[in-house]
Each structure stands twice: as C-alpha cells, then as structure tokens.
C-alpha cells in the first residue's frame, strides 16, 4: 500500500460520505443521477466477486464491504425512501445508462485480464466504471444550480481515480515494472471524462462563484 493509493481510497470514501451526508441532511437527492449510482452498484458487485474467496487484507475486505453497502444504500434512498425519492430529478436524469453495459461486456469478452468468469467480470467492472459517471455529468449540465455538496461529490469522485493513476505510476517504478493496460487505459479515460468538470469546478472555486457547466 502506498500513500497515493491510500489517498485515492480515502478520497473515494470521502466522496461517498459527502453524498450520503447530502442525502441524509438535506433529505434530497436533487442533482444526483440515480443511473450513475445504479451503475456503481454493478461496478462494485462485479469487481468484488472475490470478496469471500480471496482474502487480501482486513482493509481490503472492509473497504469492499463499505463500497458495496453504501452504493446499495444510496440507490435505496433514491428509489425507495419516501421523502428523498420525491426529490429525484427524474425527467433530467435521462442518459440511457443501460446502453453502456453491452459494449463494456463485449470489450471484457474481447480483452479480459484472463478468460475466466471472475476476470471477465472484473474487466467489465473496470470498463464500466470508466463511463459510469456520464449520466451524472449530463445531469450536471442540465442542472440550473449545482449545490456545493453535489459539486464536491463529483470532484472527489474524479480525484480518486487521478490519485490511482499516480499510484499505478509509482507501483510501476517501485514494484511491479509491469504494464497493466486494462486499469490504466480505463483509468485515464475515466479521469479524462472529468476534465471539463475539473476546469469549471476549480474556476468557480477560485472566483468564489456558483458552479455552472456550459450546456
């Protein structure tokens, strides 16, 4: 475990804490894409299939349980909680997220880490995570005003994978000296999708003005 990976995991955890904080304190999920959250449930479940078969460390197992548990809880809040579900921007969250699944699955069949069920699903999860943020980014473009917690959530979510990229570079030079095409290319695509959001987020933060994404 290196500092970059730990920072990445903590940033990822913090993003989820911020989102849960927003939902629980404001009892609202306005501006949050349910479709992105549903994709994350699929990402975590297909990635952590080895949760009970391969023990890496207490930290690894605990974090996997937290990520699966919180992502399911967020979908539950947005779909079933009597107050929160009323605040879901249903008619703006229109990205056809189910269209993302077949290409990622086909890509996982074509380029798996290994041709076994768990590795194909692991690769699928890596590819899907790269594009899972698209419904959320589209929703942000449509949101007239993005509240601070939502903006912070998306920023932290983008920052975590950027930190993972630094971790991969660090591990390449200090440990493995192996190129890992699947997570690296997916991670670069994933982080690149946040590029314009990062630009407008940092600009709004520097100018102390409300975050707005051009339509």
């Amino acid at each position: 475990m290196n500092i970059f990976r730990l920072a990445g995991d903590m940033t990822h955890l913090l993003s989820i804490v911020v989102l849960l904080l927003k939902i629980r304190t404001t009892k609202s999920c306005a501006g949050i894409s349910l479709k992105t959250q549903e994709l994350y449930v699929i990402v975590f479940i297909t990635r952590y299939l080895d949760l009970f078969t391969r023990y890496v460390s207490f930290y690894n197992t605990a974090m996997k349980l937290v990520f699966i548990g919180t992502s399911v809880a967020i979908v539950w809040y947005m779909r079933l909680h009597k107050v929160v579900k009323q605040t879901y921007s249903r008619d703006e969250d229109t990205f056809k997220h189910y269209l993302l699944i077949p290409p990622c699955f086909i890509l996982a069949l074509l380029i798996p880490l290994e041709f076994t069920v768990t590795e194909i699903l692991w690769s699928f999860s890596i590819y899907l995570e790269a594009v899972a943020i698209l419904p959320q980014l589209l929703l942000l473009q449509r949101s007239s005003n993005i509240d601070n917690l939502t903006g912070s959530y998306v920023f932290l979510l983008g920052a975590y994978r950027a930190l993972y990229i630094v971790n991969w570079v660090y591990r390449f030079f200090t440990e493995t000296h192996k190129i890992r095409w699947i997570p690296w290319i997916s991670g670069l695509v994933q982080t690149a999708l946040y590029a314009d959001f990062f630009y407008y987020y940092i600009k709004s933060w520097k100018n102390h003005e409300k975050l707005r994404l051009p339509a």
Partner: peptide, 10 residues
Amino acid sequence: AAKESSHDEL
C-alpha cells in the same frame, strides 16, 4: 504476479 498485484487494489 501481475494478476495478484492487480487484485490487491479496490
């Protein structure tokens, strides 16, 4: 080794 290392991350 590659497989192991890629699966110790989240």
